Amino acid sequence: MNHHDVHARLKELGIELPSAGAPAAAYVMSAQSGNTVYLSGHLAKRDGKVWAGKLGDALTTEDGRLAARAAAIDLLATLHTHVGDLNRVTRIVKLVSLVNSTPDFVEQHLVTNGASDLIADVFGEEGKHARSAFGVAQIPLGACVEIEMVVEVK
């Protein structure tokens, strides 16, 4: 259970959640089964536009880390829209990260830390999650990072 107010924590971190995005194809942004909420993959965005590029080419690991953090903030916006109150979150269960990267780029895990660190910072112990980070040849719209999340709520 959260022992702190998630909204107050976001404010402390200087994070204002954007409006939740809309699906770009034939899917929904979130779906719930029982107490588990599944969030669709969110593309990294910068200045309201898809953050395009390939890690190991035009983008550095630090760029990717910031992109993953931005995707995590958008995931929280979608989660907030779905559950109505982020204080209903009892556990961030799993995060899956796809990193658009060159074949020789091997720091997908460090890129994904941008999202993982933010989630843990916002939710504390309940934000520590299982995860996977993959390097992929391409992501829709040329995005550099796409992240999905599985969350338990009360």
Rank of each mutant, 00 (worst) to 15 (best):
Val6Phe: 08
His7Phe: 09
His7Met: 13
Ala8Pro: 10
Leu10Phe: 06
Lys11His: 13
Glu12Asn: 07
Leu13Lys: 03
Ile15His: 11
Leu17Gly: 09
Leu17Thr: 06
Ala20Lys: 01
Gly21His: 12
Ala22Gly: 11
Ala22Ser: 15
Ala22Cys: 12
Ala22Pro: 08
Pro23Ile: 04
Ala24Cys: 13
Ala24His: 13
Ala25Ser: 13
Ala26Arg: 06
Ala26Ile: 08
Tyr27Met: 07
Tyr27Pro: 01
Ser30Met: 08
Ser30Leu: 01
Ala31Lys: 07
Gln32His: 11
Gln32Val: 07
Ser33Lys: 07
Gly34Met: 03
Gly34Cys: 10
Thr36Ile: 09
Val37Asn: 04
Leu39Glu: 01
Gly41Arg: 04
His42Phe: 11
Leu43Glu: 11
Leu43Thr: 10
Leu43Lys: 00
Leu43Tyr: 12
Leu43Arg: 03
Ala44Trp: 00
Arg46Lys: 14
Asp47Asn: 14
Asp47Lys: 06
Gly48Gln: 06
Trp51Asp: 15
Ala52Glu: 13
Gly53Asp: 07
Lys54Arg: 09
Leu55Pro: 00
Leu55Glu: 00
Gly56Asn: 09
Asp57Ser: 15
Leu59Ile: 02
Thr60Glu: 04
Thr61Met: 06
Gly64Asn: 09
Arg65Trp: 10
Ala67Gln: 11
Arg69Asn: 11
Ala70Leu: 05
Asp74Phe: 11
Leu75His: 06
Leu75Tyr: 09
Leu76Tyr: 01
Ala77Ile: 00
Ala77Leu: 03
Ala77Pro: 00
Leu79Val: 05
His80Arg: 05
His82Phe: 11
Val83Lys: 01
Gly84Phe: 03
Gly84Lys: 09
Leu86Pro: 04
Arg88Val: 09
Val89Asp: 05
Thr90Cys: 09
Ile92Gln: 01
Val93His: 11
Val96Leu: 08
Ser97Ile: 01
Val99Ile: 07
Asn100Lys: 05
Asn100Ala: 13
Asn100His: 14
Ser101Cys: 14
Pro103Ile: 03
Asp104Gly: 14
Phe105Asp: 07
Phe105Asn: 07
Val106Ile: 13
Val106Arg: 15
Glu107Ser: 15
Glu107Thr: 15
Gln108Ile: 02
Leu110Phe: 10
Asn113His: 10
Gly114His: 03
Ala115Trp: 01
Ala115Gly: 15
Ala115Asn: 08
Ser116Pro: 02
Ser116Glu: 08
Ser116His: 14
Ile119Thr: 04
Asp121Phe: 05
Asp121Met: 12
Val122Asp: 07
Phe123Leu: 02
Phe123Val: 04
Gly124Thr: 05
Gly124His: 08
Glu125Thr: 13
Glu125His: 15
Glu125Arg: 10
Glu126Ser: 15
Glu126Phe: 04
Gly127Cys: 06
Lys128Thr: 11
His129Asp: 04
Ala130His: 10
Ala130Trp: 01
Arg131Met: 13
Ser132Asp: 15
Ala133Gln: 04
Ala133Lys: 00
Ala133Pro: 01
Phe134Met: 05
Gly135Ala: 14
Gln138Tyr: 14
Gln138Ile: 07
Leu141Thr: 10
Cys144Asn: 05
Cys144Asp: 03
Val145Ala: 12
Glu146Tyr: 05
Ile147His: 02
Glu148Phe: 12
Met149Phe: 02
Val150His: 09
Glu152Phe: 08
Val153His: 07
